[in-house]
Design a protein around this nucleic acid. Structure first.
Lengths: 140, 140
DNA sequence: GTCAAAATAGAGCCTTGGCTACATTTCTAA
DNA sequence: TTAGAAATGTAGCCAAGGCTCTATTTTGAC
């Protein structure tokens, strides 16, 4: 841990950038899991509506999910998660709850907490996550 | 506030997306302000090194900053911030400190707090920011 | 003062994540 | 059962944010 300042910064920013590319896939996986659980199926049109994008955009991203080994889908037949996708969805869901709970505990209004968590959750490291859990345990 | 669920979600995600486009410009403005304050000048090469990108990328983004009215730069003469850019840098700096301080207060290790704040800060709304400030005041 | 090195700029390419427009498939209701 | 509506998929466009390669300008060492 004796890197020059600019390398520390570069590493930090680089991490932030690559986090952005995974953030979208995480959102999709989270949403697909939710739709499968609550509606029984995850159709591209529903995904698009929930994310506020055009259906073509959703379809294109789903194909990226397939390439990444997170989802499966056959033409005109809805989207499903692979085991890897399920596992990711699980992690994302837990992390989301943790972030929202911490924000709420700090005094953030529920609306803002839910909305901001959507962006924040993708940038919370494992160390921070553990600190969050400790913090919540310590005050319950 | 009586939107259907999918519209609430869509709005929320949409906000997250557009936040991403401003996140990079905020990082640049913050860094340029820092370089101007500590080095006396902000050269594209330094910006690139600190952000861990190629210098050409930095130059291209600086020209976007100019288009957005945040910075000025004459060929071969370094980058400066406009009033608007200064104001943004100020806000970003304050917000960054607040996020780091809250993370630290919760028990996040300093390294993780600094690193995660880099990503988190761009997604913290005004309401959340105020809650953060209250939280810190309440425990000092 | 000159010339090589460093910094700066520009061109052109790639992927992502949006979009619209059009084509195809599936579903549904008469 | 079949036509029209809805869903799905494809193609092609755009801007952002990366990259490399090449050209130009500035600077610094002699």
């Amino acid at each position: 841990m004796e890197l020059p300042t600019e390398l520390i910064h570069a590493t930090r920013f680089g991490k932030t950038r690559s986090a952005q590319s995974t953030a979208l896939l995480e959102d999709y996986v989270e949403l697909i899991a939710d739709l499968l659980a609550n509606e029984g199926e995850a159709r591209p049109t529903d995904i698009a509506r929930r994310l506020g994008v055009a259906h073509a955009t959703a379809i294109k991203t789903v194909s990226r999910l397939k390439r990444a080994g997170l989802a499966t889908a056959r033409p005109y037949r809805g989207v499903f998660l692979t085991e890897k996708g399920e596992a990711l969805a699980q992690r994302v869901r837990i992390r989301h709850r943790l972030v929202v709970d911490v924000l709420r505990a700090i005094g953030v209004p529920v609306e803002a907490a839910e909305a901001d968590a959507e962006g924040i959750e993708h940038y919370v490291s494992e160390a921070t996550l553990q600190a969050f859990a400790r913090f919540l345990r310590g005050r319950s």
